[in-house]
Structures are given as C-alpha cells and as structure tokens.
Amino acid sequence: MALVLSAELMADRDAASAATPLPIEAELVARTKRGDDAAFAELVELFQNRIFNFVLARVRHRQLAEDVTQEVLVKAYFSLNKLREPAKFKSWLFSIAHNHLRDLLRKRKLETTDVEECHTEHYVDPDTPEKELKRQQTREAVWNALVQLKPEQREILVLCDIEGLSYREIADIMRVPLGTVQSRIFYARRKLRVILSGEFSYMGEEL
C-alpha cells in the first residue's frame, strides 16, 4: 500500500519563511497599489521570464507563450486588490498563469501532440571546452524530453524543480491535494528519465 504524505508530515516551509525577510516583490506590490507604475514595471521585469517559461513549457509555442504571458501580467495588475498577502505574489502570479492557461486551452484546444520548435538553438562556440559542450547538450536533451511529458507533469516539474516552489504552494496553484503533488512529481521525474535515456542512446551516449 503506497504511503501518501499527509499534510502534518510535510515540511512547513511557510512557517520557516515567516522568520526570513520579506521578498522584494512584497514591497513592489505595496508600491504598485499606491499608484507607483515604476514598481509594477520592476515586477514585470522580475517575473516575465519565469511566467514565460512556465507557459512555454505548457504551450510549446514561443509567440503564443508571449501573448499568454502578457495577458497574465495585465490580469495580475488589474487584480492586485485581490492579493491580500503581497509576500505571496510569486505563487499568486503562477496561480493566475495556471488558471488562465487552463481556461484558454479548454476553449481553444491548442495543445497538439506535435512538439513545436520552441527552444532557441544556442550558438556553440567551437572553442568551447568539452565539458561545457556536454553540459549544453544535456540541457538541450533535458528540455526536449521535458516538452514530451504530459502537460500536468511538465507543469509540476517546472514549478517544483525550476521555480523551486513548495509542495503546498504547488497544491494551491494547481488546486490538487498534497498527495497528488507528491506522486505526480515522483512519476514525472521517472518518465523524464525514461525519455532522456532514449534521447541519449540516440545521441550515442550513456546516461
């Protein structure tokens, strides 16, 4: 019988973070609410790429990801009065992105089974040392494998391993129980590993 981690046993990262200083976005949110447009511009600067990557992993199309990111940021601006804790801006913003994507994709059914070209080809300097080259190849392979996962699996790995959100935050964003977060991450990583092994064996490398 699989043991699902209950809420009581989970590390309370929120309690731990209460002792640490407020993140910079808390101050920026407070200033924006007072009418400081420059503060919101800074927030956009801080978060646009993070939301962009999150959306990109879901929709796998650069232009669409940019459009959706824009919509999410604008939506966030006009909903700021609904954010009660400025310190939680990050996960609140990801919440908006998650919900917006869900509504959009439900209406427009944009997700295809084909993988679009969304990863920019990084220029590889021929003089790059072997070690760095290998690292870049690994990153390419990881990205290519990531976009082949199912949407919920992609999303959860982006939130956990790329954005570093806690299980509780992810549960709030995706509106699923903690146990689901835990098992979804476990199986998503496993699946990614399987795809990666295939990628690497194609490239003639052992993982």
Binding site: V44, R50, F78, T138, R139, C160, I162
Partner: peptide, 27 residues
C-alpha cells in the same frame, strides 16, 4: 535527485525584449 538537478540547470528561455513594453502599453 539526478532529474531534479538536471532540471534546475536548464537555461531559461528569454521572452522578447518588447514584452514588458507591450504589457505597460496595454495597461
């Protein structure tokens, strides 16, 4: 652990430099 570490090493994609301007203009 391995997959977690590989994912954290991914280089994030960059959105267009004009995205921030578009956001401000739309607001």
């Amino acid at each position: 652990l391995d997959i977690k570490s590989k994912l954290s090493e991914l280089e994030p994609e960059e959105a267009s430099v004009f995205l921030a301007t578009r956001v401000t203009a739309e607001i």
